[in-house]
Design a protein around this nucleic acid. Structure first.
Lengths: 116, 116
DNA sequence: AAGATTGTTATCCATATGGCTAAGTAACCG
DNA sequence: CGGTTACTTAGCCATATGGATAACAATCTT
C-alpha cells in the first residue's frame, strides 16, 4: 500500500510533467523534442524528466548523442486504480447509506402503521 | 486543461492526505478522529486538511466546537478522468502502431513488458 | 465559574522543489 | 581536426512544503 503512489502523484502534480506524459502517449520522443514547447532552460527541464523517470513513469535510452524517451504505462494504471478504488468505496458507502435510509424509512413506516 | 489538476495531484502526493481521503470514503468525520491515527501534531495535520480543502477534495463545517469533514467526490473523478484519457491515448497509439507495424511491434512491446 | 475538549493562529525551522547560469562531455558533420 | 548538436554536471537561489511549539479562542461538562 505504501508503494510509489507518492512519486506517481507528485510527478503528475506539475503541468510541465503532465504535458510530457500527454506528449509521450502519442509515441516516444528525444529529449530535445520534448523540451521544445517548454519555455525553460534545458537543465531545468531535465529535472522534470528525472522526476518522471524516478517515479517509473517514463524510461529512456541513449542512442548516439540523443536520448529517446518513452512512456511506461503501468504507474498510470496504478494511480488510476487507486482513484477508482477510492471512488468505489465512496459510492459503496452511498449505496449503504441509501439502503440504510430505506431501512429507516421502512422501520418508520412499520412503526407508524403499528402506532396508527 | 489548466484546471485544478495541480492541486488535485499534489494533494494526493502525500500518504497522510491519501489516508484521510481513504478514511473519508467511509463517511464524514470530525477533525480529531481524522487526526488520531497520525503521529503528528494537530497543527501540522491541519495543514494537510487545508491542502485537501484548497484542492476542493474535502469540505468541512463547524458544529459546536467540532469541525466535521466530508469528502468531495468530483475532483477524484476528474483526476481519474485525466489518467483514463492518457491511458486511452496511449492504448490508441498502440492500436494504430500495431495496425501499421504488425507483429514486429507487438513482439517489441511484449519484450518490453517482460523486461519491466 | 472552572476545567477539559477541540480547534485555531502565529512563528519557526529544515529540507525539497523548480528555476537559473556556466562549464563540461560525447557524438555527429564537413 | 574543428565545429555544432545534444545533452550532462555542478552549483546557486527563491520559494514551497511538512514538520514543530506556544499561545489563544470557543464550547461543552460538571
Amino acid at each position: 500500500m505504501d508503494n510509489n503512489l507518492d512519486g506517481f502523484f507528485s510527478a503528475l502534480a506539475d503541468p510541465t510533467r503532465r504535458a510530457v506524459i500527454a506528449r509521450l502517449t502519442t509515441g516516444p520522443a528525444p529529449v530535445s523534442e520534448l523540451h521544445a514547447p517548454h519555455d525553460m532552460a534545458l537543465p531545468s527541464f531535465l529535472k522534470h524528466l528525472g522526476k518522471l523517470e524516478a517515479a517509473g513513469m517514463i524510461r529512456s535510452e541513449k542512442v548516439g548523442r540523443v536520448r529517446m524517451v518513452h512512456i511506461e504505462a503501468r504507474p498510470i494504471a496504478e494511480a488510476e486504480d487507486w482513484l477508482k478504488h477510492q471512488r468505489r468505496l465512496w459510492e459503496g458507502r452511498l449505496d449503504r447509506l441509501s439502503a440504510f435510509a430505506g431501512h429507516l424509512e421502512a422501520e418508520h413506516l412499520e412503526k407508524e402503521s403499528k402506532d396508527g
